[in-house]
Design a protein around this nucleic acid. Structure first.
Length: 592
RNA sequence: GCAUCUGUAGCUCAGGGGAUAGAGCAACGGUUUCCGGUACCGUGUGGCGGGGGUUCGAUUCCCUCCAGAUGCGCCA
């Protein structure tokens, strides 16, 4: 359906034309003075020079033309040359009815849908998720859902880190601890056991232990490097071990991501890109893109317009080994070959900005991607503690994501049990839902690129700009709708068909106007890859609803048509909020 | 040293070439014929890090300075 700004804009543009001015001047925006009007047009001021007329005169001419238009309650030309517009309640009600009849709540689908790969998550095999992984998962998931809702084909790829020294370290440590395992016997030719020789908790203990040892013990590190090398050369026993590590680890990671409502379409790994490396290197050499510099194979990516020197993109180290860059480039090749995406979006720590600039330039220069393939870097800032420094445990260590979530679940559970005598089991489930909203909303309501302070007390509060506040508002609406259904015996479908009357009161109209803002908010969030725009919108909507709610007696309204109209408004509000939070990646409970 | 990003109320954060710069928290004061008061209403606070420029108009764009964070070829 048509966007409300376009509808209004076309009326105003026509009026400009009728009054003898350029229709392009008739651009309408949401008012920045809500006390004066709902929408405004500044075109008269922009056109003053062109027509050698006072802005106010132009505005008045246009206002005169618009005088009879029934979309508007009032059209005023004021002081310097603003055109202040208020919508008629009838027009608004009509627009909302259309919105309610639309499954997509008025949000248009992309004219030219794209296939978009979103690379987020950033988990490493054999290492537990820690708070550093939270932002990528939360932001990436939301961006993916937004782009998907806008009609694009989206593919989320977790892009596991499973290839490198970490694997060699684990193998080395495992060999010390359990030397009798068949994986270490090179003469062993039988089938390896199906069962992994370790559990996830062992694995999570082994890696840090091995990593620490390697920093102190040269011999140990050498052994780990050798093991890494042999694994990559395809040593049978090591490969089998690696598969065990992968399986155990991935199962655990899935569980953790599930609990965050984060789901990946692809569980690709760095190792999957390895086969693409030799032909890639060959190609870069043959086409003359790469050259040797100080013994390393590099591709120059500096451009004349650079304000600083961009170092070349390194393909192979002087010892011939590949790097992270190489894997990333190979991954691009793999993705282009298998999925032919229009865009690839990387949701990564913003500190990797320069690094990705190099990779993107290299991919473009060497034509690994098409000219019009979009490569986007969505960098996010650091999650800090209340002291403004990177978030740590009380002991100063890295906080495991699992523990962070458990803590907040517990906090939420306590709050819920304190205030209501609910069945503990139900309270646990509710706490989980509300806690997730607290964590995700706390993160997403900030601009991704900025560092932010993770304040548990603030995020879990039921007051203010928080996830729980939004959920509370929704639960309240659900509660009213439930009662309405009980009293009238009507079904959800029947509620959806209720007729919406033109808003009578001020807060009701404000709520109606807020509802029309959904599509623009989603479109903006999609265009800017900015979930926080949706947060801001839903919060505003919740505020408008609560204001309306306090001024309006809904269930005790005597005129049936009026009461039904209120219910229709509530139902639409709830749907918009539900859709909004689903784009952010969380849900609302029935009660809380 | 060079580069990037950030600098908006006591705190946490939105906004953004135009009309009186906004929210939440915290503080204080109100609202209960109530559909969930975990709500709503009201009061105060900053002139957008400093300076300069462009513009009819800048907090928003440009330059410069200051402060903080981050990055700067053989790590990932």
């Amino acid at each position: 359906m048509e966007q409300i700004l376009d509808v209004i804009g076309s009326y105003v543009a026509d009026a400009f034309e009728t009054a003898g001015y350029d229709a392009k001047l008739g651009k309408v925006t949401i008012s920045n003075r809500p006390d004066l009007c709902e929408y405004q047009c500044n075109g008269a001021m922009a056109g003053a020079k062109q027509y050698h007329k006072a802005p106010l005169e132009i505005a008045e001419n246009v206002a005169n033309v618009l005088d009879g238009c029934d979309a508007f309650e009032s059209v005023d030309a004021v002081r310097p040359g603003f055109l202040n517009l208020k919508l008629s309640a009838e027009f608004l009600a009509g627009y909302l009815a259309e919105m309610a009849a639309d499954e997509r709540l008025g949000v248009p689908e992309a004219d030219t849908p794209k296939k978009i790969i979103i690379d987020y998550g950033g988990a490493n095999v054999a290492k537990p998720l820690h708070v550093g992984h939270l932002r990528s998962a939360v932001i990436g998931e939301s961006v993916k859902r937004i782009l998907h809702f806008l009609g694009n084909e989206t593919i989320g790829d977790v892009h596991l880190g499973d290839w490198g020294l970490q694997m060699g370290l684990i193998i080395t440590e495992l060999r010390l601890r359990k030397p009798d395992l068949p994986y270490f016997d090179e003469s062993y030719e039988g089938e390896y056991p199906e069962e992994a020789p370790f559990t996830i908790s062992e694995l999570e203990e082994i890696y840090p232990a091995a990593s620490a040892k390697s920093k102190e013990d040269e011999e140990y590190k050498k052994a780990a490097l050798e093991a890494t090398n042999q694994l990559q050369q395809g040593r049978r026993g090591y490969h089998a071990l690696w598969e065990h590590i992968l399986n155990v680890s991935v199962a655990d990671l899935k569980k953790n991501y599930d609990s965050l409502n984060v789901f990946f379409e692809l569980w690709k790994k760095e190792s999957d890109a390895q086969p693409y490396i030799p032909p890639l290197v060959e190609y870069l050499k043959k086409e003359g893109y790469a050259h040797l510099d100080q013994g390393a194979l590099v591709v120059d990516v500096a451009e004349e317009s650079d304000t600083k020197k961009i170092p070349p993109c390194m393909i192979l180290k002087s010892d011939g080994a590949s790097l992270y860059n190489t894997t990333d480039l190979a991954t691009i090749v793999m993705r282009m070959e298998n999925w032919k995406p229009d865009d690839i979006i990387y949701v990564v720590d913003k500190r990797q900005d320069l690094y990705f600039t190099q990779v993107f330039r290299c991919a473009r220069k060497t034509k690994l991607v098409n000219e019009d393939t979009g490569l986007y870097f969505l960098g996010f800032g650091t999650m800090n503690g209340k002291d403004g420094k990177p978030f740590k445990t009380r002991q100063g260590g890295v906080m495991r994501l699992e523990n962070l979530i458990a803590d907040i679940n517990e906090e939420m559970y306590t709050k819920i049990m304190e205030n209501h005598e609910t069945d503990p089991e139900e309270a646990r489930e509710t706490a989980r839902i509300v806690a997730l909203s607290a964590i995700k909303y706390g993160d997403l309501s900030n601009q991704a690129s900025k560092d932010y302070i993770f304040d548990v007390d603030k995020f879990t509060s039921f007051e203010g700009n928080t996830g729980p506040y939004l959920l509370y508002t929704m639960v309240r609406i659900k509660s009213i709708l439930r009662r309405y259904m009980e009293e009238t015996g009507r079904s959800a479908e029947e509620i959806a068909a209720l007729k919406l009357l033109p808003a009578a009161g001020e807060s009701e109209k404000a709520l109606a106007l807020a509802l029309t803002g959904f599509a623009p908010a989603v479109l903006l969030a999609g265009a800017e890859l900015a979930p926080h725009k949706i947060c801001g919108y839903i919060y505003e909507l919740a505020n408008q609803f609560n204001r309306f709610y306090h001024e309006t007696k809904i269930m005790s309204e005597e005129k049936e048509a009026q009461r039904d109209s209120y219910i229709a408004l509530l139902s639409l509000t709830l749907r918009v909020m539900e859709c909004g939070i689903s784009l952010l990646g969380f849900t609302a409970p029935e009660k809380m």
